[in-house]
Design a protein around this nucleic acid. Structure first.
Lengths: 208, 208
DNA sequence: ACTGCAACTGTACCTGTGGTACAGTGGCGT
DNA sequence: ACGCCACTGTACCACAGGTACAGTTGCAGT
């Protein structure tokens, strides 16, 4: 029989990851204690080490799950935008609108970006975690760059920009927007910045 | 007599702060141990606690110093740009060019932004540290917004944007650019993003 | 009913770190 | 000569993070 989640699915592992992700984004990885996680999850220390052989493996699992989820969310946004629009530029602009709305609809400020969090705690992690973060950023770059290239074929840029840098700009602005939203305790900043990015992309391809 | 730095200036304290800042930006605050700092500084634990009554006070001192330094750097860039140019828009564009060049000239990737680092370790710090970060972001917003308002008086915007959001965009892009530079191990990304911001500001006020 | 494995629990133990307490000292300014 | 700034040295403690490993429970398949 094919069962997709190994036996009964081990939802305990997922629960640990949920708790760990939230804690790490609030206090950092080093300050997130295993004792704290197992208390919240209602298991014992041994239970934790059954799922993760050490804290490093927790970091890997957190990153893997986060990257996969992030990629899926972005792909979904672009897919929904494509359904609403044929033209590559307007599809892109609609996607950015959807993205901004999604972040604006969050109940409080965005919980944070694990890649950004981990990048300031670099030396705590294995090469594997750093490689995961690297691939995560590369995936975003690729997803945006593909779209921007397709747009550029139909709309010759009015402002000469490196499209790869323009692709990276989205990621940079999201990470930076999250940081500002958190520091300023103003959840409106992130969606605002995404909309500004949208304005810029429109200006690049359509002019002011 | 007026001496500006309390007696002989206590350069030990500065050395601790230098070491702590570098360590915190690499591993995070919680993972930076006092033992490690005193070993690197060549002092004893007692020496450390003479300067900082606890670790929390170290965090406050780090943030204060970082914010002050950051503000000074930005103010200097704008001042130098003003010397080269009278027009508010071109002064701003020159400043962004100088900024990009400054970050490009760093020997390796940018060491990182303490505000960004601390924002993902929020719960470790006192309200005082959070307030410092808050004020740091506010100062950047204010510095950029003043300039942008002056520009807008002479150049009616061709693209309708919220100037406060446009001011915040600089900060967001710098923080995001640093993160991407670190994760991708490519120091060119940060200056590239600053130059993209410059392109956007020019497009806003001059059109594509 | 028996076997086997996933998913845990229980107990014991070691280390490193943060932090306290306090007495002592070298050198410089006045 | 006096004082005080900027430390050093020694001793100590509580506790969290982390390791190790043997034992237990419950469900699945045959």
């Amino acid at each position: 029989m094919l069962d997709m989640s190994s036996r009964k699915g081990s939802l305990t592992r997922e629960r640990i990851l949920d708790l760990a992700e939230a804690a790490v984004l609030e206090k950092g990885f080093a300050a997130t204690s295993i004792d704290e996680l197992i208390a919240a999850a209602g298991i014992t220390k041994s239970g934790f080490f059954y799922h993760f052989k050490d804290k490093g493996e927790l970091a890997v699992a957190l990153m893997e799950r986060y990257i996969a989820h992030n990629d899926a969310v972005l792909a979904d946004i672009f897919r929904r935008a494509d359904e609403l629009n044929e033209d590559p530029l307007h599809g892109f602009l609609v996607a950015m609108k959807l993205f901004a709305e999604m972040t604006a609809d969050l109940p409080s400020t965005h919980p944070g970006c694990l890649v950004a969090s981990f990048c300031y705690q670099d030396r705590l992690f294995s090469q594997e975690v750093r490689d995961l973060a690297h691939r995560g950023v590369l995936t975003w770059r690729k997803l945006f760059l593909e779209r921007l290239n397709r747009v550029a074929e139909h709309y010759p840029p009015k402002i000469p920009v490196d499209l790869e840098a323009l692709a990276d700009m989205a990621n940079a602005l999201v990470d930076g927007g999250i940081i500002q939203s958190r520091v300023m305790r103003d959840k409106a900043i992130l969606p605002q910045q995404i909309m500004l990015y949208r304005d810029f992309v429109r200006a690049v391809f359509l002019g002011a």
